[in-house]
Design a protein around this nucleic acid. Structure first.
Length: 278
DNA sequence: ATTAATGTTCAGAA
DNA sequence: TTTCTGAACATTAA
């Protein structure tokens, strides 16, 4: 599901919209319940129409269009949302479109099967407030080791659960959290305050390496096939997964133990009890 | 036919 | 303060 690598792939996939002018914003015909769009679509349309897209950025797991007015149009894919410029996986779950002029791309689309995604337009000021409100920690690709240690060390929360907390570090989700801890050889249930300095070093190093590598593979498309890049092609990082969704399979690192699945904080965690000891 | 499971975020409770 | 729980929603597998 869209975590940092998948959202970064979406961002890169639609970069060609930079410099284009928005002609109209609209909900697209869709039989499902409407997704959350704020402010309401007619107001949003009025504010973005005729405005140029200055840049396409990423904020954690969100794609952010910076407009020449300073407003930010934010796409939040959550579980199954996709930001794309090519053919969507189907018309039935197409939720939103931006008609574009003055560039090589005619339209930007938001497709979302489950409909948990959100689209929000913020003023420059509201966006700055959002950046300062503490809800998002440093980006996972940017955070330094000392920053990471400082933001995690004092917590009693299990390290796997803490990695999912976007206010500590932004961008890691359920899939990559398991992969990171496996590569770092740290047990997912270890309380943050019990994680040793050299373990933080490995977590930090593998977090950035894994996310970077996954970006190069255009993210992970899981068995349900939902996640796609901006041209509606699947990613390929799923073929590199060591533990995620591999319960019962032999660990490819130690070639001995079978991958375990446990539930932490109501979500699946996968790990190898041989490679990842407490 | 029903129920559980899927994973992200936020509001509200503990 | 910090952590936990449930709800938002659609689809598939059991």
């Amino acid at each position: 599901m869209p975590e940092l690598p998948e959202v970064e792939t979406m961002r890169r996939g639609v970069l060609a919209i930079e410099g284009a002018t928005i002609e109209a914003a609209q909900r697209t015909p869709c039989s499902k319940r409407p997704i959350s769009i704020k402010p309401r679509i007619d107001h949003l349309n009025r504010r973005v129409s005729g405005t140029k897209i200055v840049s396409v950025d990423r904020l954690g797991k969100r794609v952010v269009l910076r407009l020449e007015t300073g407003d930010r149009l934010i796409f939040e894919p959550r579980m199954t949302g996709l930001v794309l410029i090519g053919n969507p996986p189907g018309r039935e779950h197409l939720r939103f479109s931006l008609a574009l002029a003055d560039g090589p791309v005619q339209q930007l689309l938001f497709w979302d099967r489950r409909g948990l995604g959100r689209i929000t337009l913020l003023t420059a000021r509201q966006y700055q407030e959002k950046l300062g409100d503490g809800s998002l920690g440093p980006d996972a690709l940017e955070i330094t080791l000392p920053q990471m240690v400082q933001r995690f060390q004092s917590s009693t929360t299990p390290v796997k659960v803490a990695l999912l907390d976007q206010s500590r570090v932004a961008g890691v989700g359920n899939l990559y959290a398991s992969e990171i801890l496996h590569l770092a050889k740290v047990h997912p249930g270890t309380a943050c305050k019990k994680v040793r300095k050299n373990q933080w070093q490995r977590i930090h190093q593998h977090m950035q390496a894994v996310l970077q590598l996954a970006i190069e593979h255009e993210g992970s498309t899981l068995s349900d096939g939902t996640y796609r890049n901006a041209l509606n092609d699947p990613g390929s990082y799923q073929n590199q997964h060591c533990v995620y969704d591999r319960e019962g399979q032999r660990c490819s690192t130690c070639l001995a133990a079978k991958i375990q699945r446990v539930v932490q904080s109501q979500r699946s965690t996968f790990y190898c009890k041989q490679c990842q000891k407490r």
